[in-house]
Design a protein around this nucleic acid. Structure first.
Lengths: 239, 239
DNA sequence: CGGTGGATTGAGTGGCGTCAACCTGAGTGG
DNA sequence: CCACTCAGGTTGACGCCACTCAATCCACCG
């Protein structure tokens, strides 16, 4: 059974046996985190990068006045701070949203990959490029969509990303995230997130109870969100 | 005289003679664009990437209803669509904001670099990571700052980026961009951008006449913007 | 059974959007 | 040399989306 990271990359291009082996062996240690715990601190200069193998995490930046902004939500298989290999110091923190299992990949290992395995290097590069594409998409949503559109967009995106790593169940997926977290991710207030969730529920596009979201009307949801999955690069081609 | 791209990368880590030579020789052709002209179309799968050697450009995404969102503003020395080397098809367009000179770098050349020059590859990777860091910073500003803060943030960022490529003149820089473009970049209406510009002028933080912006009070501007330049990675270290 | 985190609801407010008019300067042509 | 045009900047009136504050509900848990 391939790891979720391999699944994710294989979706975009074939990995050789050797590349898969190198990736599976890249983690030097495994660490557990509690919900709310900080996985990587803003300002740090880590000597390894964190591969999220279980749970949900977010990149967050806290402002002087106590507010915080979430700039990315990560799921199983995401290399949450791969960029810290080259980008130092960390300009944001990584927080565990649920209990998390993290595999620590030493920067030495990434350095070695970049020296000896050009194609695998490009695939890792690609995964940071997809992160950037997601950021751009969030920026568009922020500027142009009303709250319901933004929330719908996030749900569409997460559904597809979870599907890639086998974490969906038909049209449903586990979404163990509080509305306060969503507020920080969408740039809305918690109160307004709540009203927006209800709006989507009432429209019949989704069902959302506890930590489980079910998409009842993909087309409707995608229409509200103006969702176009191109940016996720979910097709396999030579890279 | 090194090219602006070399200047930009040298700011982050030393480039060897060979790496500089390769970069300077990477452009296979030069192309001119008029203001408003589209440099790369959304949906295309270019076989080269565009290095902006003169002028201003933006990444933009237009929505069904005719609105457009600008997700990045680029200046001399920026590799505007380096990501199209690995990320296909283009999920957004690149537009010339002024007259532009573009140097076309074939993906073949980038491929060759990635196979033979690991350090230079990491430096190019780095430059896309800085783009992503800028996206994150914009996301934070969008969610957490009022209009004046957002605009101030953009000005602080552009000032530093222009300084790296020698395009500032003391505290002043040329900023040949209409308020309508700014509106699309900040997710505001053109009318509100206008009022916000006036607010910053009145506060004494900047002077802004025609296409020239002068920062009169950096600390004040940075305070309004909650600006912290860490994310631009403007220090040299081994990468 | 009280405590606690999260979801929900209501009332009142304000930042920013829209619409629409007007101003200004640069370029053009008669 | 002036009328005209046009893009971009500026201003005012008015409305709405989303914010804040504050209370209440609910489920779970020690």
């Amino acid at each position: 059974m391939p790891s979720p990271l391999v699944l994710k990359l294989q979706q975009r291009d074939l990995l050789s046996e050797e590349e898969q082996r190198v990736l599976e062996a890249a983690g030097a240690a495994v660490k557990q985190f509690q919900p709310g715990q900080i996985i990587v601190h803003e300002g740090d200069e880590p000597i390894w990068s964190c591969l999220l193998t279980k749970g949900w995490a977010a990149r967050s930046k806290s402002l002087a006045d106590g507010r915080r902004a979430i700039t990315a939500i990560h799921v199983m298989g995401d290399f949450v701070d791969l960029q810290s290999f080259l980008l130092k110091p960390m300009d944001h923190s990584v927080v565990a949203l649920t209990g998390c299992t993290i595999s620590l990949v030493p920067h030495e290992t990434l350095q070695a990959i970049s020296e000896r395995l050009p194609h695998l290097t490009r695939m890792l590069w690609l995964s940071t490029l997809i992160d950037a594409a997601i950021h751009r998409e969030w920026l568009v949503a922020r500027g142009q969509l009303p709250a319901a559109g933004q929330l719908a967009h996030l749900l569409c995106e997460l559904y597809l990303r979870l599907q890639v790593v086998g974490q969906t169940d038909g049209w449903a997926f586990a979404f163990p995230v509080t509305q306060a977290v969503l507020a920080d991710a969408l740039g809305l207030s918690a109160v307004h997130v709540n009203r927006t969730v209800q709006e989507l529920r009432r429209s019949g596009a989704i069902r959302w109870a506890g930590a489980k979201v079910t998409i009842q009307d993909w087309d409707g949801l995608a229409a509200v969100a103006r969702f176009d999955p191109t940016y996720l690069n979910l097709t396999s081609r030579s890279r």
